Computed example of a mutant assay.
Amino acid sequence: MTFAIGQDTPAPSPTVNDATVLAPATADAALQPLSPAVQTLLSFQPSDVKFNLDTLMDILRDKRHEGWVLAAYPDPKTAQPLIGAGFSLDLPAREHPQRDPLNPHMFLEPSSADLWQAAGLPPAQLQQILTQFHDRLGAWNKKGFRRQIWNLDPQITDQDADALLRIGIIQSIDNAKAYCRHFDALSASQQMAMTQLVYQMGVNLEEFSTFLDLINRRGESIDQAAAAMAQADPAYWRSVQMSLVQSQWARLYRARATAVIAMLDPAYVDNPAGAEHSIGAILHPARTRRAHGAALHRASLTHRHSTAVRKRNARVRKD
């Protein structure tokens, strides 16, 4: 998955194959044999979670989170092809071992093609979109391609993008359970927060070791942890939040991080705005190189000004 895209100034369009690819209403996807991963995804029931899936879909469509683009576009960092609300189009199936011996839930990392199939879309359409994406990337390069995002003809419909987003969320729910032993004991907003973290970070969430230690209450027995989770101790959940607030991810993507981290507050449902304000007040954006350069420039000017003042004062005293 990826992060919300920015709007850049459109650049002149080179000549490429611009045939619009719209999702046909066919049964092609249903004719393909279903992999075990796809079968697992299709077995999901809304009652498997406490939050409303449609609510999370609305959140992720928003540009503060993932955005909404109906044609393949490059990830701003990796140039990986994405579509809809940040759905990755070319990931292979991956091994993701469960390293927590007390969590029986296994990770589910199917390929993009499997997820595409689970969403009910025809495989041939995916290949056509990828071919067109690579043609455009070769002609425009990543920066030029991203300038064209809002000029691209749709390659999928809103309904297709909804289906991809839904299946991506279901995969994230499944993996959130693999990351968090006590997922079922979390409140609705906390389950949604865990699901969003997985949706946005995927396997990179493994790097958040302090957060995972805290959310799993490692060092406690299963019974002790379950009892503690039921108490919804504000101090404990504040420490969980702070483990994310102090991360580079939170500083780089402050708006979305504020919204997600706030949902871990056990009192979130009573005052969502207050919970977000509490996190926003302590979560400061990362310093950019430009800002750092400007600070150095100001410091240099201050130093030169101070030196000039000292020399002028010395001349005055000498006279």
Rank of each mutant, 00 (worst) to 15 (best):
A188V: 04
L186R: 02
T2V: 12
A30C: 08
T288Q: 06
H305Q: 13
D158P: 02
L102R: 06
W249G: 03
Q196V: 09
Q148E: 15
L137H: 04
F145L: 13
G6D: 05
A124T: 07
R289S: 14
A4W: 00
P154F: 04
A225Q: 13
A161G: 13
A226P: 03
Q80K: 11
G6N: 03
G144K: 06
R287Q: 12
Q190P: 02
A267Q: 13
A72Y: 09
S189K: 01
K177E: 02
P97D: 09
F208H: 09
G293A: 09
Q80L: 11
S300H: 02
I5M: 10
T195D: 05
K50P: 05
D8W: 14
R61L: 07
R99P: 03
A72C: 11
E109I: 09
T20H: 04
S306N: 13
I261L: 01
V49R: 05
M263F: 08
M1Y: 01
I167S: 01
V245M: 06
L252K: 05
A232V: 07
L214I: 14
C180M: 08
Q148C: 11
G120T: 02
H96S: 10
Q190H: 06
P33D: 04
F51S: 12
Q200I: 11
A4H: 00
G219E: 15
D174A: 12
D265S: 02
A226D: 08
F183Y: 08
L301D: 12
P104N: 10
P76I: 09
R61H: 07
G293C: 02
F145W: 14
P104R: 07
Y268A: 15
L137D: 03
T40P: 09
A314S: 09
P33I: 06
A37T: 08
W116E: 04
L164E: 12
T258Y: 05
R254N: 11
K143P: 03
Y253R: 09
G280T: 04
L244Q: 07
L42M: 14
V260N: 06
A294S: 10
A275S: 00
A139W: 00
Y268V: 15
Y199H: 10
A118C: 00
L115P: 01
A139P: 00
A227Q: 09
F44W: 12
L301R: 08
R251E: 15
E276W: 00
A113Q: 03
P76F: 03
S111A: 13
A232T: 07
L41W: 00
M229K: 04
G219Y: 15
S306L: 07
R136K: 15
S239C: 04
T302N: 14
V269Q: 15
L108V: 06
P81A: 12
H277V: 05
S247E: 13
A79L: 10
A161N: 06
K318Q: 12
Q125E: 00
I173N: 09
P46A: 10
A113S: 05
A255T: 01
V16F: 11
H297L: 15
R254T: 13
A119Y: 05
A27H: 04
M201G: 14
L108W: 03
L252M: 00
N175F: 01
A294I: 15
A275P: 00
D135S: 13
A71F: 12
K311C: 07
D75K: 05
I170N: 08
A299D: 13
Q200E: 15
L165Q: 13
A226G: 04
L130P: 06
A227R: 08
H292M: 14
F3E: 02
A178Y: 01
N52M: 04
R238C: 15
K142D: 03
